[in-house]
Design a binder for these strands. Structure first.
Lengths: 115, 115
DNA sequence: TTATTATATAAGTCAAAGCTTATACTTTGG
DNA sequence: CCAAAGTATAAGCTTTGACTTATATAATAA
């Protein structure tokens, strides 16, 4: 874990690019507290499965996500060992938990079995 | 000044989009401490004047910059009254001051009169 | 006033980003 | 083994973004 020292500007830019998309920012806010699988995100965001997978790939390539396979499902959660974790958590902490978009997403969350 | 309360997700996304470009992130890091005019940035970044102006326009439209006219020059500085100021300062604080790119830019800084 | 300097804006180009549909891969259940 | 479900990847389309050149605007200097 290298969360205490400061980062190069290009490291910071890479993180910002990864989360400057509204879908991906919301994804990171959601996985901050719980893991989600692709099919859950598909339901919550109302996007096609490839679109969701492509966003998750970008976040994973930026080192922000951990992947956990369980049966047919792949669960994604925040990689808190990322060199970006401190800054990312800082950014996410500025988002109001009562944000309408965020609450709308959470309202659509379903347990994996029921989908 | 509304820097204490939390922001909507779309507000945060707007800020992140504004500073997720390497040139604009550096600009904000620079104007955090000093005002700069367009011609100084042109020298420092080695970009054309319209390219610099267009980046500055984006930052201004996001509410991150204050503009101060002095003679033929327009000086830009950080708008610390922006609703984004707290988060922006947080982000900038994660950039190492000894970052090579940043130091290279500062090395090219010249007083306005001498350009 | 006229020329010069600083800056903004407009229009066009090219590459990147986000989406779509189609298809491949992987795991589970019969 | 075979079908179905979950996920990834490939290819194509469309929009956006960062740049370029050309031009307009504004302030100063001669």
């Amino acid at each position: 874990m290298e969360t205490l020292s400061k980062r190069s500007a290009s490291d910071v830019t890479a993180l910002l690019k990864a989360v400057s998309d509204p879908t991906r920012l919301m994804m990171m806010k959601l996985v901050e507290t719980n893991p989600y699988c692709v099919c859950q995100f598909v339901e919550m965001f109302g996007m096609t499965q490839p679109a969701i997978s492509q966003h998750l790939r970008k976040l994973k390539q930026a080192g922000l996500l951990k992947e956990n396979r369980s049966g047919q499902w792949r669960f994604y959660s925040m990689n808190k060992e990322s060199i970006h974790a401190t800054l990312l958590l800082d950014i996410l902490s500025h988002i109001d938990d009562s944000d309408a978009q965020l609450q709308a997403l959470r309202a659509k969350e379903k347990p994996v079995d029921c989908i």
